[in-house]
Design a protein around this nucleic acid. Sequence first.
DNA 1: ATTACTGCAAAGCATTTGCAAATGC
DNA 2: GCATTTGCAAATGCTTTGCAGTAAT
Lengths: 159, 159
Amino acid sequence: MGASDKKFGESVHEGEDRSVDEAWPLFVSFLKGRASRITQARRIVFERVFARHDHFRADDLSAELASGENRVSRGTVYRTLDLMTEAGFVQKIRDHDVHAHYEHIYGHGRHHHLICEASGDFIEFSSKVISEEIARICAEKNFEEQFHRVVVFGSRKGV
Amino acid sequence: MGASDKKFGESVHEGEDRSVDEAWPLFVSFLKGRASRITQARRIVFERVFARHDHFRADDLSAELASGENRVSRGTVYRTLDLMTEAGFVQKIRDHDVHAHYEHIYGHGRHHHLICEASGDFIEFSSKVISEEIARICAEKNFEEQFHRVVVFGSRKGV
DNA sequence: ATTACTGCAAAGCATTTGCAAATGC
DNA sequence: GCATTTGCAAATGCTTTGCAGTAAT
């Protein structure tokens, strides 16, 4: 396919090798900027992340790297993933909090949350615009929606 | 108060007792419908959930119920919360999966996911409409957004 | 009487952490 | 040479589970 055919995002997957090679120097700068070291383990994890074009789980990646000639230990995989997140190369697709939160919904409409990272407070909101847009997207993607969640992380102004 | 005065979001706390009393019989039906028993422990957890008007964590609720005259054990609290979720009285405010998922975002635009519960597949999408709506809501709520996530659970049609 | 449920304590399991050895600078 | 990292293994902490006793039907 021609790169021009690719609609989604700007990622051009023929460029995958180039992608690591382009990105690595940036990670190096990031590390240098914080007086951290450029190590083999970090390079290995970095490459492995870029070799994937799908979503992955930290523990899967760690398992993959647990053996073989370029093995990296669990702790280091997790630590490097944190660095990469901080540097903005990966995004964590999960709530920050590992704990399960609940709320009772009897008599409530569906709603979503603004979560203040500083105080941990939740602000509820609901939006017809969003629900409708999601319904539209699902129809377009031939996907049957069961429910959706919208979470906005940030902070309350003036708190 | 007239129920009609109630806006959304501002739960009116005088109504709290009525809310449980209205809901409990429904839970009883649900339990009977699946040949499960109506027990004291379940009633205690149910009430405690409805007595809260905020979000709560399973482990906090469990800690609360760990002592006192109406104590309920940890295991039972978790099990009852599952039942209540299944029955639709509470909503779990967290991804289904406890594991952290990552993806690399270098060269990708921000995007979100449709997650197929059957196959576990992810379908990516992005929507300017949603981002703008969220920005609008944050402005309205005086909230400074850092980032947002939209997750739609459901299933792919014809898979 | 039966059978489901509860409490308990132990097990699970992803993730984190302390520390001695290894490595980058 | 010195400080940061790594690997290892043990610890964490929420959640789940097996089992024997208890309660609901």
